[in-house]
Amino acid sequence: MNAETKIESRELSYAEAIREAMDIALSTDERVVLMGEDIGVYGGAFQVTGDLVEKYGEDRVMDTPISELGGAGVAVGAAMTGLRPIFEFQFSDFATLAMEQIVNQAAKVRYMLGGSVSVPVVMRFPAGSGTGAAAQHSQSLEAWLGHVPGLKVVQPSTPEDAKGLLLAALEDPDPVMIFEHKILYKMKGPVPAGHYITPIGKAAIRREGKDLTIVGTSIMVHKAMAAAETLAEEGIDAEVIDLRSVRPMDRETVLASVRKTGRLLCVYEGVKTLGVGAEVSAMVAESDAFDFLDAPIVRLGGAECPIPYNPELEKAVVPQVPDILDAARKLATGAI
C-alpha cells in the first residue's frame, strides 16, 4: 500500500469495505457496472452491494436474471468491449454453472486472440462454510480457478485487503476472481479511506516468528493467528503468512519464511487433495528452501467430503484452531 494515500482509517466490516471499493469505482469510472443476482433493491444475498442501486441506478447496479452462465458471459463480452463489469455470484458454488464462460472464454480470449483483446472483468465469489447452508452453498473452489492460466485469483482475509484487492482488480487488464469468505463479511477491521490498492500476487506476513511458518488463506489466516497467540504462550514462535493471492502466488515471501523457520504448515479450507496448500507445499519442495526444512511439510485442508449440514459436522470438516495448534506443536517439537 502507498502510505501517502492512507489518509485516515476507520473500522469497517469486510462487506462494507467491499461496498466502499465498489462505490469509489462507480463514482470515479463511468465504465464500471455491477452485475449479479439480487444485487439491486435486495442489496445482495449478503448485503454487500447494499444500497448502491439507490445511488447509481439500475443501469449501473444491474439485477441479472438467474442465469449464471449467461450473466458471466455478458460480463466477459462487456469487458472485451469497453466496460469494467464487477460480476457477483450469489454463492461461489454457482460458478459451476458459469465455468464455460470463466474458463473457456474469460481466461483464454486474450491468449487465443494473440493478445489483441483484454478481458478486464472482475468476478466476486462469496465462498466457504460456516453458515449451515450445506453442500451446494459452502464450497471453497479457489483451487479450481487457480488452475487456469489467464485468470488471477485472490482471497482477501481482512476488510482492508477486501477493498484494496477489489480496487487493484479493477485496475488490472486481466480477469480477476475474488473469493470472499462469507463468515468474514461481518468482521470489522481498520480500512483506509479513499482509493488505494492491495497488490495482486503479494502475500502479507501477519505475524513474524522464527519456529515455524503457517501459510493460511482467507478465514484460516484468522484461525492461524489465534493459534499463534496460544503457541506463543507455550514458547512456540509461529510466523503467519496470509497468502492473499492464489494465482499468481507470492513465491518469494513463502520461501524466505521457510528458509528462516525450517517448518511449514499450510492451512486452507478447500478440500485438501489438490488444493492451494498442495501447490504451496510443492513450491517449497521444489525450491532451495527444501534444504532448510527440519520436518516434513504438513497440510491442513478440508475433508474429503461435501460440506455437511449438521453444525458439528460442518465444523469438523474444515480446519479449526485446535487442529492448527495440534499440528503446529507436533511440527515445532519434532513429533512429526
Binding site: A72, V76, G77
Partner: peptide
C-alpha cells in the same frame, strides 16, 4: 478474430459467443 474490424472472434464452444455478443451490446448501449 479481427477485433480491429469488430470481429470479436470465432469460438470453439457451441453457444460460447452468444452471451459475449450480449455483453458487447451492453457496452454499446451504456
Amino acid at each position: 478474430a479481427d477485433p480491429g474490424k469488430g470481429n470479436l472472434g470465432a469460438n470453439g464452444i457451441v453457444g460460447g459467443g452468444l452471451p459475449i455478443a450480449v455483453g458487447a451490446a451492453l457496452s454499446a448501449k451504456r
